[in-house]
Amino acid sequence: MDTENSTAFVVIREEGLKIAKTLKNSLGGVIFAKSGIEGDGLVHFDRLRELFEKLFKSYRRIIGIMATGIAVRMVSGLMESKYKDPAVVVVDEGGRFAISLLSGHEGGANSLTLHISSIIGCQPIITTATESLKRHVVGIGFRKHTTKNQIKEAILKALNMVNIETCDVRFISTCWHKAGNSSLIDASSELGLQVRFLPRFLYENELYNFKESTAEKYLGVKNIAEASALLASFNPKLILRKTVFDGVTVAIAREGAFGL
């Protein structure tokens, strides 16, 4: 087995291998594949339950490319404590959803789910109460040399305009081009918010008619702030259209589950 802090990917059908390899390229770790699945660098297993028993003891993050029901049966009886259990995230073989299944907060499954969604563009499913009650997504765009304070102040001013607190925000959303930007990461950390970076192909979906902005000149996509807020939300409605604060563009979407 690998070190305690590594990531294990579990693939039970060949259809899930491409997703596992894509995630491994960004997250690192080891791919465990059902015997009969061919590929380089795979660790094969025969019995899924026995594998999960071993992974629970040696890995801190387990990503299963499989149905949620299978994963639930595999972790049943293995759980000890939310402070000890590894983060478990399930991704469907179609790459449409990433579900935070176990150890959402303490184990980091919630943040891992967002990270996965940033890599493959799937919908993150997080059901812990503190996250699922938050109904707002902040979309943001800014230039390369924007400072942490500029970003932080822009977000706070935007939220104030629509009478929303940071505790009502599910996460900040922006484009792939900003992944790893220290100013954004530091600003979001000070605000107590997470960031979801959306892959390029989502912005190029012809089903959406996003308004053009300067982003088209620099990134080749029409819009960042409004598009990021809408693309990262469920049944969204813009409650703040793109607004510029000291060079930082912010848009806010409210998710409308059950028409609320």
Results as ranks from 00 to 15, higher is better:
21 K>I: 06
21 K>F: 07
255 E>K: 06
157 K>P: 09
217 K>N: 15
79 M>A: 02
196 R>P: 04
237 K>E: 04
93 E>F: 07
122 C>N: 15
140 I>P: 07
19 I>W: 05
50 E>W: 10
208 Y>N: 00
92 D>F: 13
59 Y>E: 04
257 A>T: 05
179 A>W: 09
81 S>Q: 01
2 D>T: 10
144 K>I: 00
234 F>Y: 07
145 H>I: 08
43 V>H: 03
137 V>M: 10
171 F>H: 06
187 A>T: 12
162 V>H: 05
260 L>A: 10
192 G>K: 08
15 E>I: 04
152 K>N: 11
150 Q>H: 14
260 L>Q: 12
134 K>R: 13
54 K>H: 06
197 F>L: 06
237 K>S: 02
26 S>D: 15
40 D>E: 15
211 K>L: 09
114 L>T: 03
196 R>M: 14
250 V>G: 08
51 L>Q: 04
3 T>G: 14
5 N>M: 13
13 R>N: 08
199 P>E: 08
84 K>T: 11
42 L>E: 00
144 K>V: 02
98 A>D: 09
96 R>H: 03
17 L>W: 02
250 V>S: 10
203 Y>M: 00
177 H>L: 14
27 L>G: 13
4 E>M: 05
86 P>T: 11
105 H>G: 09
53 E>C: 14
179 A>G: 10
40 D>H: 15
77 G>D: 02
1 M>F: 07
71 A>I: 05
82 K>W: 05
253 A>T: 03
177 H>R: 12
88 V>M: 07
106 E>M: 15
226 E>Q: 02
192 G>R: 04
260 L>N: 11
218 Y>C: 12
36 G>M: 03
77 G>S: 04
30 V>Q: 05
94 G>W: 12
227 A>W: 13
23 L>D: 04
241 R>S: 13
56 F>K: 05
240 L>G: 06
225 A>D: 05
42 L>C: 12
119 I>K: 10
244 V>S: 01
107 G>K: 14
223 N>T: 04
140 I>Y: 12
4 E>I: 03
180 G>T: 02
224 I>D: 12
70 I>Y: 03
156 L>C: 07
144 K>D: 01
11 V>S: 09
107 G>E: 13
63 I>A: 00
45 F>M: 12
260 L>I: 01
251 A>F: 11
37 I>T: 04
139 G>E: 11
